[in-house]
Amino acid sequence: MRVFKNHRHAISLLACAVPIAALAGGGSIDRTVVAAANGEVVISNVSGTIDVRGWDRNEVQVIGHLGDDVERLDVESGGSRTFVKVVLPRGNSHDGEAVIEVRVPKASSVEVSAVSADVSSHGVLGTQRLKSVSGEITADIAGDESEVKSVSGDVTVRGSGKPLSLRMSSVSGNLDLLNAAGKLDVVTVSGDARVTMGEASEVRGRTTSGEFELRAKLTPDGRVDLEGVSGDMTLRLSAPGGLSTEIESFSGDIEGCLADNVERVSKYGPGVRLNVRAAETGGARVRAKTLSGSIDICDR
């Protein structure tokens, strides 16, 4: 009896998980488990699609279709976490394709991992961590501390317009962000990044050869810190108290409506810079540096 008491939680967890996990082989799927209103849902699928949707029920529902090469779908719920995993046969880690739609309580945190599967997410209000290797990611992001990562797949994210903290990174995929606000960290190697933000308090960005385009209304004490190697940057920024800039390019150009203030870094060496001070002290600050890329900046 004492042993039973000690293992009561584990047994109840198993009782909950086992019947749900026993879906084997290909074909249509429709599974539902009870989930916490603001719990965490962890989803993984190698190939195919993952479509996540927030809804008003305290349940996680998985519907879709499993390819013939898929071994099974595991849906396990325990405590505040729910796991949805498309399992492939051992030694066949790429061919099994599954198309799944996962409905989650809208206040959930969501973590998605994919290899070549395309990922989409809509209507989720909690933190989202979306990761794909070559699949495309399309998501509406409203949760703070969210993160979207890709290796070669393109990423399109739409913010809620409310301030949040978001990280986006890619190696060769393009990154597009619309209607975001708050804090942003963007990193890309050769992919292009296009960012449109409302009230931006902090933007950090880095690109190696990809182009970087940032359009934002900075908060009065907003900060922008960008760095590039050969990629060009286009910055359309405004702030209530004006902008202070610290912009430098080693062998590229600085252009735009502030270009009248561009000066050479040294009389005889290469390099140009644009250092201007905002009309009001303590105003928004923009720092951008590049090796050979050009920087086009305007505050209108």
Partner: peptide, 26 residues
């Protein structure tokens, strides 16, 4: 240039790590 070099080396390690870990969830 010094700053760009350090950051680029860090960036290369980050990218290599991302590629190495790509698909590890399978």
């Amino acid at each position: 240039l010094q700053e760009l070099l350090v950051n680029s080396c860090q960036e290369e390690m980050r990218a290599l790590t991302a590629v190495r870990d790509a698909g590890s969830q399978e």
